[in-house]
C-alpha cells in the first residue's frame, strides 16, 4: 500500500504572529517556519503503518515556495521514502491544493492519503475533505486512532460530542488530529541521510487549478481585550463577579 502525506510549510506554532502595518498579511520575514504540526503527526502515522508492514512506501508532498524543500527534507529525515515538491510562489487555496493533490494521487497510484486536519496558518480545515470528494473517496477526519485491516480502515474521530468510530473502505483520506500519536524526534544522522533521498520537482503549470477563489482584502490584528487586574483573594474575586452580575 502506497501512502501520500501532504505537508504544508507554515509559521512555527510557537511564534506569535504579527500583522503587517499595511494590512497586507502577517509578517513572514525572519519568522521561523516549520512543518504544520498536524502534518508531522500524519507522517508519523504513515511511518508507523510502514513499520507494521501495512504500508510499503510513504511519499510526502508539498505545494509551496522553493524554501518548502526544507520541510520536505525534515519529513524525509523522519522516515518518508521520497518527496514531491510542487513549486508555487502564489498562495494556494484549499480547493486548488486538493486538485493538485488529486493529480498526485492518480499519477502515483496512491491507496491512502494521511494528512493534517488543518493548517495552522489559514486554519481552513478543508483540504482533506475536498481531496476525498474530488477523488470520490471516503474520508475520516480528525482521527485519533487508525487501524487498517485489509481493505478497510477503522478510525476513531474526535468530534465535539466525544469519540466516533467510523469504518471506511480504502482507498480513503484520513486527516490527523493531535492525539493520533506523538511524532518521533528527527535524529542528526537521519538529516544527513535524507539529503540523498529522492525529491521530485513539479511545476504548478502542470496542474489545473482554475477554480473560483476567495480574495483576501485585508488582514488586521484581532481587537485587543481591555487590560485586566489582579484580585488579592477569593472574597475579592467573588465580590467583583457579583458586581458584574456574573455569579
Amino acid at each position: 500500500m502506497k501512502v501520500l502525506v501532504p505537508i504544508k510549510r507554515a509559521v512555527d506554532y510557537n511564534v506569535r504572529v504579527r500583522v503587517k502595518n499595511d494590512g497586507s498579511g502577517v509578517e513572514l520575514n525572519g519568522v521561523k517556519m516549520s512543518v504544520n504540526p498536524f502534518d508531522e503527526i500524519a507522517n508519523e502515522e504513515a511511518l508507523r503503518l510502514k513499520e507494521k508492514g501495512v504500508v510499503t512506501e510513504v511519499v510526502v508532498a508539498t505545494i509551496g515556495v522553493a524554501k518548502a524543500e526544507d520541510q520536505l527534507r525534515s519529513e524525509l529525515a523522519r522516515g518518508a521514502d521520497r518527496a514531491i515538491h510542487v513549486v508555487a510562489d502564489q498562495d494556494i487555496q484549499p480547493l486548488q491544493a486538493a486538485r493538485i493533490l488529486k493529480k498526485l494521487v492518480e499519477d502515483e497510484g496512491i491507496d491512502l492519503v494521511l494528512m493534517g486536519k488543518q493548517a495552522i496558518d489559514d486554519d481552513a480545515n478543508q483540504t482533506g475533505q475536498m481531496l476525498a470528494t474530488l477523488l470520490g473517496w471516503p474520508q475520516a477526519t480528525f482521527a485519533s486512532k487508525v487501524e487498517i485491516e485489509g481493505q478497510t480502515a477503522r478510525v476513531d474521530r474526535e468530534i465535539d460530542a466525544g469519540i466516533e468510530t467510523l469504518e471506511v473502505d480504502l482507498p480513503a483520506v484520513i486527516t490527523a488530529d493531535l492525539r493520533l500519536n506523538e511524532p518521533r524526534f528527527i535524529k542528526l544522522p537521519d538529516i544527513m541521510k535524507a539529503k540523498r533521498k529522492p525529491l521530485d520537482k513539479r511545476e504548478l503549470g502542470d496542474f489545473d487549478i482554475d477554480v473560483p477563489t476567495l480574495e483576501v482584502t485585508e488582514t488586521r490584528p484581532p481587537s485587543g481585550r481591555e487590560p485586566g487586574r489582579m484580585v488579592k483573594d477569593v472574597d475579592e474575586l467573588i465580590a467583583t463577579l457579583k458586581d458584574k452580575g456574573l455569579v
Binding site: 481552513a124 476525498a132 476567495l214
Partner: peptide, 23 residues
C-alpha cells in the same frame, strides 16, 4: 463550524467546485 460542519461543508463545496469560507 462544529466538527460536523467542518467535516461536511468542504465536501459540499468540492462537489460544487467552489471554495469555502471557514469560520
Amino acid at each position: 463550524n462544529t466538527t460536523t460542519g467542518k467535516d461536511l461543508m468542504p465536501r459540499v463545496a468540492a462537489l460544487l467546485g467552489v471554495p469555502q469560507v471557514t469560520d
